[in-house]
Amino acid sequence: MSAAVAKLAQLRPGARGYTVADLHTLPEDGPRYELIDGSIIVSPSATGSHNMFARWIAQLLEEANPDTAYVVGTDQSVTIDEHNEPRPDVVVYPSAHLDDSPFPVDGVQLVVEVVSPTSALRDTEVKRVLYARAGVPFYWVVVPDSDADTIALAELVLEEGKYRYATHYTSGVFRTQQPWPVEIDLPALAARTARYRRPS
């Protein structure tokens, strides 16, 4: 039994589930953990393609970043409240928290989740409600399709406490002004991925 599994077995959730304090007692060298509505989510190690998509999007956001007020991070824990600490694939947050881990959700401008087979419902539904409740103004959901060699992106914007689609799952060139002007050539990224999968 691993140290992480043994520690999880020792934890006793309260009436509302586990807390951030419980989460922080788990070994840092174990699996990827998130705390969602009092439940500790143990995610399998991400695939190389999943990490590539997150890294490429983070890099494009960083290259378009107009100043130093915000930074772009990947796979970092964000504390929302006592029972919620997700770990988004990409996050744009205040540079004042550059050296903090985890950091508070206050001031987070954008969260990006790359959907994998084990996270589809969590990324498209559960986290959508969670990030809206936390007041994150912009939320992108990225859906790769390895069979069709496409990458689709949905841009959601917070209005009156709920997200609405500003862009509904485009697989073309995505352009937005939020959190700053950026262009993401999804067909080019999909083609690059296909070349890795089927090298000549």
Score class of each variant (00 low, 15 high):
181 P>A: 07
25 T>E: 15
20 V>L: 15
89 D>Y: 01
89 D>K: 06
183 E>N: 07
72 V>R: 03
4 A>C: 05
24 H>E: 13
117 P>M: 07
189 L>A: 02
2 S>A: 11
148 A>S: 08
45 S>T: 13
146 S>M: 10
173 V>I: 13
59 Q>A: 09
16 R>Y: 09
73 G>R: 03
8 L>P: 00
100 D>Y: 12
120 A>M: 15
169 Y>S: 07
131 Y>G: 09
152 A>S: 14
161 G>W: 12
162 K>S: 15
177 Q>L: 02
88 P>A: 05
127 K>S: 01
160 E>Y: 08
14 G>P: 00
179 P>K: 11
37 D>V: 06
74 T>S: 02
99 D>F: 04
136 V>N: 06
68 T>A: 12
155 E>N: 09
72 V>N: 03
116 S>T: 11
129 V>L: 09
89 D>M: 08
19 T>V: 14
123 D>G: 05
123 D>E: 01
119 S>F: 01
24 H>T: 08
200 S>E: 10
37 D>G: 07
67 D>K: 04
44 P>H: 12
92 V>D: 00
114 V>R: 00
79 T>F: 00
90 V>Y: 01
50 H>C: 04
103 F>W: 07
12 R>I: 09
53 F>W: 10
96 A>L: 09
182 V>F: 06
41 I>G: 02
111 V>I: 15
96 A>I: 10
18 Y>G: 05
134 A>P: 04
42 V>H: 04
144 P>V: 12
66 P>Y: 12
121 L>G: 12
155 E>W: 08
32 R>A: 10
119 S>M: 00
24 H>C: 12
91 V>Y: 01
89 D>F: 02
95 S>G: 03
63 E>I: 11
182 V>P: 04
178 Q>F: 13
51 N>Q: 12
30 G>R: 04
29 D>L: 13
189 L>C: 03
74 T>H: 03
49 S>M: 15
171 S>W: 15
138 F>R: 01
13 P>W: 04
74 T>N: 01
95 S>E: 08
107 G>A: 08
180 W>R: 06
148 A>W: 13
103 F>T: 06
199 P>Y: 03
148 A>C: 11
10 Q>A: 10
131 Y>F: 14
113 E>S: 05
139 Y>K: 05
54 A>T: 05
153 L>Y: 00
140 W>A: 07
7 K>W: 10
148 A>V: 10
118 T>W: 07
92 V>I: 14
95 S>F: 00
174 F>M: 03
8 L>Q: 02
26 L>R: 04
169 Y>P: 01
198 R>W: 15
94 P>H: 14
187 P>C: 03
111 V>E: 00
121 L>Q: 12
179 P>Q: 10
122 R>N: 06
170 T>D: 04
116 S>R: 02
42 V>Q: 06
8 L>G: 00
154 A>S: 10
65 N>E: 11
130 L>M: 14
112 V>N: 06
50 H>K: 08
163 Y>R: 01
141 V>H: 11
43 S>I: 06
81 D>F: 15
126 V>D: 09
124 T>W: 11
10 Q>P: 01
38 G>P: 04
150 T>C: 02
94 P>I: 14
109 Q>W: 07
48 G>Y: 02
163 Y>A: 02
196 Y>L: 10
71 V>F: 13
168 H>M: 13
193 T>H: 11
63 E>A: 14
162 K>F: 14
11 L>W: 07
33 Y>K: 06
132 A>C: 10
97 H>P: 03
177 Q>A: 11
